[in-house]
Simulated scan of single mutants.
Amino acid sequence: MDLSWDGLRLFLDVARLGGLTAATSKTGVSAATLGRRITALERQVGERLFVRSQTGYRLTPVGEELLVRAEEVEASMLALKRWKDGAIGERVVQVSAGPWTSAFLGRQIGRVWTATDRFGLELVTANQKVDIGRRHADLGIRNQRPTEQWLVGRLIGKVAYGLYARPELVSGVAAGYFVGVAGEASQTHSARWLHARHGDRIAVRGNDALSVLELVAAGAGISVFPCFVGDSDPPLARLAEAIPELETEQWLVAHHEERHSFAVRTVSERIAALMREHGALFRGQQSRTN
């Protein structure tokens, strides 16, 4: 079976956009021609790739499998083009992490990326795991060892958590209230821990990490933060020792095929070195940073 990259590229457009009409606008290829190309590809594969309906094209299980492999081919073709063109900044390394870790990397950008690098950097901030297997990111900082066979990971540290509040007994702090998390961010393990143990005392909530931090710093109540966040924020004070059951590992994860590329390897090594240097802060063993 000899599948052409041109055919796979059209398949990717139809799969991602959900139908021929949208793909026509992107590719400039007529709907009739796209339909024939998809049908020809299905004959080559020997299986239906889409379920066709009036509302669009939906991938079959075989189509889903081909999508993963076609995206791998796409990544390789893009890498080949970047190598051929030799253009500065065309290679962008995407690093996915939670809001607090992304903010930490942003403050330490000079340790991760410099203006002399022949690649760009993008921080992909998300509360949920970003799919590195489908190249939605090149590197990920996660709290668990990767289990997917196409991913590799290395342990780069541990992260401690503690309860923090504004030292002055004002507003919600004086009343013993807690600041909780709402929305998507409420699914993190620390947010669930806080709700399970102090849910009846949560008086105020924020729907993202920064708003919760601002509320606590203003005296609205007590909340749980990673120690590298709380111990680095002058308005906050840790109320007790780190919470043992909330401690997590910190894994740097990459796709096994991309990890050896120069740009990804360079960023990976810099992040690992940065995390080792600040290991005490992340483990909750350093009370204040400059």
Score class of each variant (00 low, 15 high):
N127H: 11
N127A: 10
N127Y: 15
N127Q: 08
Q128D: 15
Q128L: 13
Q128T: 15
Q128K: 15
Q128N: 14
K129R: 15
K129Y: 15
V130Y: 04
V130D: 02
V130K: 01
D131F: 08
D131S: 00
D131Q: 06
D131Y: 11
D131W: 10
I132G: 04
I132D: 09
I132R: 04
I132C: 03
I132K: 01
I132H: 06
G133D: 08
G133V: 12
G133F: 07
G133M: 06
R134P: 07
R134S: 09
R134T: 08
R134H: 01
R134K: 12
R134Q: 07
R135I: 02
R135H: 02
H136K: 13
H136T: 01
H136A: 09
H136W: 11
H136E: 07
A137C: 11
A137I: 01
A137M: 02
A137F: 00
A137S: 08
D138G: 03
D138C: 05
D138W: 04
D138H: 11
D138E: 11
D138K: 01
D138F: 03
D138A: 03
L139K: 04
L139M: 04
L139V: 02
L139F: 03
L139G: 03
L139C: 03
L139H: 03
G140E: 03
G140A: 13
G140Q: 04
I141A: 08
I141T: 03
I141C: 07
I141E: 09
I141S: 07
I141R: 01
R142E: 14
R142K: 00
R142T: 10
R142H: 13
R142M: 06
N143R: 12
N143P: 02
N143C: 11
Q144P: 03
Q144Y: 05
Q144V: 14
Q144D: 10
R145H: 09
R145S: 10
R145Q: 13
P146K: 02
P146E: 06
P146D: 02
P146Y: 06
P146Q: 05
T147Y: 12
T147C: 07
T147H: 11
T147P: 00
T147Q: 10
E148L: 14
Q149G: 12
Q149T: 13
Q149H: 15
W150A: 14
W150P: 06
W150R: 15
W150S: 15
V152N: 08
V152R: 11
G153T: 03
G153L: 00
R154M: 10
R154W: 07
R154G: 10
L155R: 15
L155K: 15
L155Q: 10
L155W: 14
L155V: 00
L155Y: 11
L155A: 10
I156P: 05
I156R: 09
K158M: 11
K158H: 12
K158V: 08
V159F: 04
V159H: 01
V159K: 10
V159I: 12
V159W: 01
V159T: 10
A160V: 07
A160M: 05
A160K: 12
A160N: 01
Y161M: 05
Y161K: 04
Y161D: 07
Y161W: 08
Y161S: 06
G162T: 04
G162F: 06
G162I: 06
G162N: 01
L163R: 14
L163W: 13
L163P: 00
Y164L: 08
Y164R: 04
Y164F: 14
A165Y: 00
A165D: 10
A165M: 08
A165K: 02
A165V: 05
R166K: 11
R166I: 12
R166V: 14
